[in-house]
Every structure is written in C-alpha cells, then in structure tokens.
Design a protein around this nucleic acid. Structure first.
Lengths: 337, 337
DNA sequence: TTGAAAGCGCTAACAT
DNA sequence: ATGTTAGCGCTTTCAA
C-alpha cells in the first residue's frame, strides 16, 4: 500500500495525499472535507509511509547514531537506555556502536554514520579522531559529545566535573589523615581521565605530598589489569589510601586487594569514581563518586534534538558546554577504622 | 557523487558501473580492463553507494532489529555487545530497543521493525505478543528469540537450560542439608522464568518438602522490590536457604538481607541465577549460576545471519531450538558455615 | 484547491 | 559486452 494506491482509490492525486500526510493541508488550502476523507481512509487501511522512500527524498532518516566506548559497560548502557527513551518519544531510532576507544573502529563508524545518513550523533569520542569528526561536522552533521570532549572541536558536549570531584575526594582523604594516597587509572589522553588525574595531582601536590600513580594500559582481559594493580600495590606498601579513577579500576582493584589479602578500610582506604551495587554492598561499603547518569543522557539527547529541530529555522547558535556535578556517596571505605 | 556521475565521467552507463559494484562483472562478461578502470576510479573518488537508495530498490536495509528487555541490564547489554561485534563484521547495523516486557511498547517496536524494513530481528519476547510476531514472521521477516521463547511460535531460538539449572541448584542445597528452601522470583509467564520456577518446585516436591515461593511484581523502583523481599523473609523466619531466580532478585535480595541484619551463609544460604562481580566479591562470596552470555549472543546472531543468507537460495529449513548450558559458580554462600 | 511530473540514487529487465 | 530505461515510494515545484 503506497501513497499512489491511496490516491487512486480515492480518485485524487498523490500530491494531495502527501500534503495531508505532512500536515500541510491547511497551508495548501485543501478542503476540510477531503482531509477528513483521506485521514479516515488512511486509518482504515492502516497506511504508514515508507520511511526509506522518505529518507531518499528528504535526506533525513530519523535515525540517531550513538557511539559509546562499550555498550556492555554499565555506565554506557544506562546512558543508552535513557537516550533511547527520549529519542523514541521524538520519533527517532538509534543505531549504536562500541568503539573500545579504538581509532580505526571509530573512524569506520563515523563513515558509517555519514553513509547511512543518520540525522545526528551522540558520541563518547576517543582521542585521535579530531579531523574526521570535524569534517563530519563541516558536512552539516549535528554532533554531541558526552563523558568526554575533544578540546579542538567546537560542538555541544556534556561532561561531569571530573577535576573537582577527584580533587575534593583527595582532599577529603587528606583531611581524614591519610598520608600516602595512590591513584589508579588508565593510560588515556581523554579529557575526562585527564581531568580526574589532574584533580588528584593538584590536591596531592598542594600539600607537598608525593603522588603515587598507576596508569594501566587498558586491557579487556581483567586478569591482566588485576595483575597490574597487584604489582603496583606490592611495590608501594606504604600506601594507606587509594583512589580509583573509573569503574573497571575499582572492581578490579577490589579483586586485587582480595587476592593480596589487603583489607579495605583496615589496611587501606578507598574511594572509587563511578558507583554501583557492588560498592554499596561490599564489606566495608566503598565510598564512591557517582555520576548523574540520567542527567548526562538527557542533556545529551536534548542538545541533539534541539540541533535537529533548529535546522529548519536558523543556522548555528553557540555550542553548549555542559558540566554536570557528581555526588559523593560517603561510605565506610574512606573513614579511619 | 552518484553512480550516474561515475558513469558520465567514465563515459559508460550506470548499468555497467552497477554490475561491477555488485560483483556481477564476470557474469555480465564485462572486460577485465573496464572493471579495473572503474574500480580504480571508485577508489580514487572514494565513492560509496547510497545505502538508502539501495534499500529502496532492493527492499534490504542491512539493519538488524535488536529487542531486549532493558539495554541497561548487564545481561542484555553484554548480549548486545557480542551481537554488535558479529553483526558489523557481516555488514549489518543494529537498531536496538528496550521493551520493559511491556506488551504495547513491544508491539510498537515490532511495527517499527516492519516499517523500517529491518532485514531480521533478534528478540527477547515478552508474553502476549504472539500474534504480532507471528504476522511479522508470516510477512517473511526472519526472527530469532533468545533468553526465552514463545511456545506457540515456530522460529529459531536460544535459551539456557533453566529448568535443570535450578533443579540442580535446589538439589545441591538439599544435599548440603538445608531444610527450608525459598525461591524468590518475579511474577512472569515467560518461558525462562517458568522453567526456573518449575525446576525449583520439582526438586522441592520430590523430597516431600514444602515450597516457599515469592513472586514479586516486577517494579523498576528497587525500593519496592527490596520491601517485598523483606516482607517475605520476615514472614518466613524458618528459611535456611533461598534461591534467587534472576540478577535483580539477587542484588535486591542481598540488600534486603543487609537491611534485616541477616547474615548470608551463617543465617541463610544463597544461590543466585546469573553471575556478576558483586557475587564474586561479596563476603561471603555468592554461589551463582552463570549464563554463557557470549555463546547465547553468538548463537542468536549466527542463526539470524544464516537465515538472512539462505533467503537467496532455498526457502525454509527447520527451525533450530538451541539450549545452552549454564555453569554453577560454586562459592561460599551455599556451603554450611 | 488539486494534479502532473520530476527526481532522490539505485538495480535489473530488456534491448542492442 | 554495454546501454536504455522503468520503477522502488516519496516530496515538491510548477501548472492548471
């Protein structure tokens, strides 16, 4: 059943039907009566326009590209869920992909977004794809970053206050009397990881303390990561507190503690960036910096939808850089035993 | 840059270019030389065919619809990740959506899959959408179920041995001397949940014991679920062991224990269906039935890809019902203190 | 107010 | 072996 069939059956032209379908009946001064008749008929036969034909004609696909680091990561999958909710409500579908922070994969996906003509995209960008993203933007694609951003690229983004969050956490440990505070993170040049690292270094150096830093090469095999953490802990027995910069660092860190027989809180204080059930239920419970996931997701999709709608009217408004706040979930792991 | 432009610039016809692009040069006996020239040119200008135009013409979109219960659920997001990997390798993109086991939402998504002309779909179906899915299948859409299936619908599916897994777990508790074993699950008519419940009931009844059953109305608000579990535990103080039928039951169950001051292992033994870091790191560690997530995902996408390819040749081969096996992760929570 | 027709980019039947 | 052309279903300009 196509628009032509409808036109035939009602003995009118495709044009008229199309105008009515696109809510331009009034504008085109089509008689109320005819509009009613057409709408009635469309409902009767349950006609739905073919979105592919629409896309070919209009250049719009009503599809959003969502590019995360890894959809299996609870942070990103939670983000995906909230984005899905809002996007579908606005008539958009979502194509997702996981970059693993891999440059080549990312570039392939960016090409795919362009080829497939997605209307816009929401991206947690790895470093090193600046020029590709820039040319996407130059080609007119609305792009929103989240979780991190690329400083060279001028576009909307949503990020948390990474620097302040970790700085504050570090200062709290210092205030609680911890002397030798380690920071376990992943080797990364992404803005959010750099922010967290800087927050730690600033706080530690401000008190004249020595920083103890482990930058793990990210590895999907958790055994390798645990091994790296164990090595670091063994070679720095003086540590009385440690901050984990991300959820995988935190959970693998706890496993490393367990394997080494290190007792959290008693032997070593802990604060983790990102929160989860594990941290709440662990004994002792783990102090965590929780991100406002829903707010991040909603802001990202809102920013994108705004761009998608505004296309009709004017051109570019200034790009929004949103920094949203984390919350410290104060638990037992960061309190003197 | 379209196929027409290429044809013009090379002074040949669109057809020739199209045949070459679609690897039918040999079949159409196009000269090696011309093929080379065209391929060279295409590489030079980095031409990519417009997938939307292709879709309109061929009716194929190279898009797979993935319908899960909730993409934010770690089980489903892990599944999504593995499916993504394989699908992209075969040139398919994925549109995902979360049903929340809601019938109306599901039907909307099914319509969307049809309207959008996805080439096939992978679905964790809620109950009550049998006729809609059947008509989708009748319309020629390849459908693969996973995690659960709809008994009335004849199609490929992948599921774990739910019944045996829980039966075995229950028997293990019995053998370990536990007398009053409870089962905490969600009210659901889905095949996987029914299987687990039956496994429990069968094992308990076989020994003449009384079943203690809590069927929680699934509620996104975890406070409500915890409350339900607490109520059940309080009204059944005789329980010395409990089996959780799903991950949300397990984690919320642990929270309920904690709030009630019940000590796992000392006061009550625990086995949980589904595994996670929390269960491994909890003190005491929680015995869990882990699903072979990668195998489930790979089987599902393999089954679908097979259907998608076979379309070309013959019609229907018999539908595959795959039952894959869970693994019992034996830990401390199910062992007498 | 409504209709005819071009054209989005592609594939493939048919013609040469 | 290569070219011409219809048509997938839609939107929109132009004409009536």
């Amino acid at each position: 059943m196509s628009i032509g069939d409808i036109a035939n059956q009602l003995n009118i032209s495709k044009t008229t039907v199309s105008f009515i379908l696109n809510n331009r009946a009034q504008e085109m001064r089509i008689s109320e009566q005819l509009v009613k008749r057409v709408e009635q008929f469309i409902k009767e036969v349950d006609y739905k326009p073919n979105p592919i034909a629409q896309s070919l004609r209009t250049g719009k696909t009503k599809i959003i590209g969502l590019m995360v680091e890894n959809i299996a990561d609870p942070f990103f999958s939670a983000i995906a869920r909230h984005i899905e909710n809002k996007a579908y409500k606005s008539g958009y579908k979502i194509i997702y992909c996981s970059t693993d922070n891999d440059r080549d994969k990312t570039i392939e996906f960016l090409d795919m977004f362009k080829d497939r003509n997605v209307d816009g995209c929401i991206i947690a960008p790895p470093a090193g794809v600046e020029s590709e993203i820039q040319s996407l933007i130059n080609a007119g694609m609305p792009v929103v970053f989240f979780d991190r951003h690329l400083p060279e690229i001028e576009t909307d983004f949503v990020e948390v206050n990474n620097y302040e969050s970790i700085q504050k956490a570090t200062n709290m440990l210092i205030k609680n009397g911890y002397q030798q505070i380690g920071f376990i993170t992943f080797a990364s040049s992404q803005s959010q990881m750099m922010g967290r690292l800087e927050g730690y270094l600033t706080a530690v150096k401000a008190t004249g303390r020595q920083p103890y830093l482990l930058e793990i090469q990210f590895n999907p095999d958790e055994k390798v990561m645990i091994q790296a953490i164990k090595g670091f802990l063994k070679s720095h027995p003086q540590l009385d507190a440690v901050i984990f910069s991300a959820i995988q660092a935190g959970t693998n860190g706890l496993k490393a503690f367990q394997q080494l027989g290190l007792r959290v809180q008693t032997d070593i204080a802990v604060i983790a960036f990102d929160d989860c059930d594990l941290f709440e239920l662990y004994a002792p419970s783990i102090t965590a910096i929780s991100q406002p996931i829903e707010q991040i997701a909603e802001s990202a999709i809102d920013l994108l939808l705004k761009r998608l709608n505004q296309h009709k009217k004017t051109k570019t408004t200034a790009h929004k850089k949103m920094i949203v706040k984390t919350t410290m979930q104060l638990r037992n792991s960061s309190i003197r035993h």
